[in-house]
Amino acid sequence: MQNHNLPTDELKNFGIINEDLTFSKKLCEDDIHKFLQGYTIVADNDKNRATFQLTDNNTKLKVIFLERDTSLSKIIEDSREKVQYTNVKELSNENPSFEKKAFIYDSETGKTVEFDFIKNATELTAIIADKKDPEELNRYKNELLKLKVYLQDKIDQYPEISKEIKNDMNIVSREISSVNTISKNYQQSSKNRNSDIQLNVNDRDMYEDANRTREEQEEQPEEQEKRRGFRR
């Protein structure tokens, strides 16, 4: 890895480094270290997103421009009410890059956290399931199904990268199966609760026992009255 051969003109152009070749103050030391190690820097601005990555032994800068279907400010605001789902597409017509994201508000930290449907699949499904909200689970499943349809279409359009797309499809299919299992568990749990309620109301033995008890209680005053009359 070479740091002295960085593409400084491009890095300056995108504000990653300053004129004196120091890194932007917007980047912390950890960000800079990871960037030089080949990790991606992500910059968001309303609906627009750009990713920056050093390649070819840090001599070239790979830049990708993307656009999400909803502004970031609105996503963060609405995430306080419920989970927000959004699509991010690459603006270039040459690349089929597409990402589906979920934004979930963390009440403990007061921050909205972004999850990728592919990279964070298992974690995302677990978080949605932990909410124990059948309606939210169904929303999540619908988004998974949309992503699966999109990926299926891309396999036909881009056969040269079909292997990578199929890997993503397998991940999505696995999560759909997980959601179906979770949904069945919700339904079974609901049925069990309803059965318990119906048992209390409609159980014949309990009903007859209650009637007998009531009849016996009604007969007691009559017997007592007869005994008082006999004594007279």
Rank of each mutant, 00 (worst) to 15 (best):
residue 45 N to A: 11
residue 57 N to C: 01
residue 64 I to N: 04
residue 60 K to E: 02
residue 39 Y to A: 12
residue 42 V to Q: 14
residue 29 E to M: 15
residue 34 K to F: 14
residue 46 D to A: 07
residue 65 F to S: 03
residue 53 Q to S: 04
residue 61 L to S: 02
residue 28 C to N: 14
residue 51 T to P: 12
residue 61 L to Y: 02
residue 65 F to E: 04
residue 55 T to G: 00
residue 35 F to C: 08
residue 48 N to E: 09
residue 34 K to C: 13
residue 67 E to V: 04
residue 44 D to T: 06
residue 56 D to F: 01
residue 33 H to C: 13
residue 59 T to N: 03
residue 39 Y to I: 05
residue 28 C to W: 09
residue 65 F to D: 05
residue 61 L to C: 01
residue 39 Y to V: 07
residue 36 L to C: 07
residue 53 Q to Y: 01
residue 62 K to T: 02
residue 30 D to L: 12
residue 49 R to M: 08
residue 45 N to Y: 14
residue 34 K to H: 14
residue 59 T to Q: 05
residue 29 E to N: 12
residue 64 I to L: 07
residue 42 V to M: 15
residue 31 D to W: 11
residue 32 I to F: 13
residue 46 D to N: 14
residue 42 V to H: 09
residue 52 F to E: 04
residue 60 K to T: 03
residue 34 K to D: 13
residue 37 Q to D: 12
residue 42 V to A: 15
residue 30 D to V: 10
residue 49 R to G: 03
residue 45 N to G: 10
residue 50 A to M: 12
residue 40 T to K: 15
residue 53 Q to D: 03
residue 60 K to R: 07
residue 39 Y to W: 12
residue 56 D to R: 02
residue 42 V to L: 15
residue 45 N to H: 11
residue 28 C to V: 12
residue 66 L to W: 00
residue 67 E to W: 05
residue 67 E to I: 05
residue 63 V to D: 09
residue 53 Q to T: 06
residue 64 I to Q: 02
residue 28 C to S: 13
residue 39 Y to N: 13
residue 36 L to E: 11
residue 44 D to M: 10
residue 49 R to L: 02
residue 66 L to I: 03
residue 51 T to V: 11
residue 49 R to A: 01
residue 32 I to K: 06
residue 32 I to Y: 08
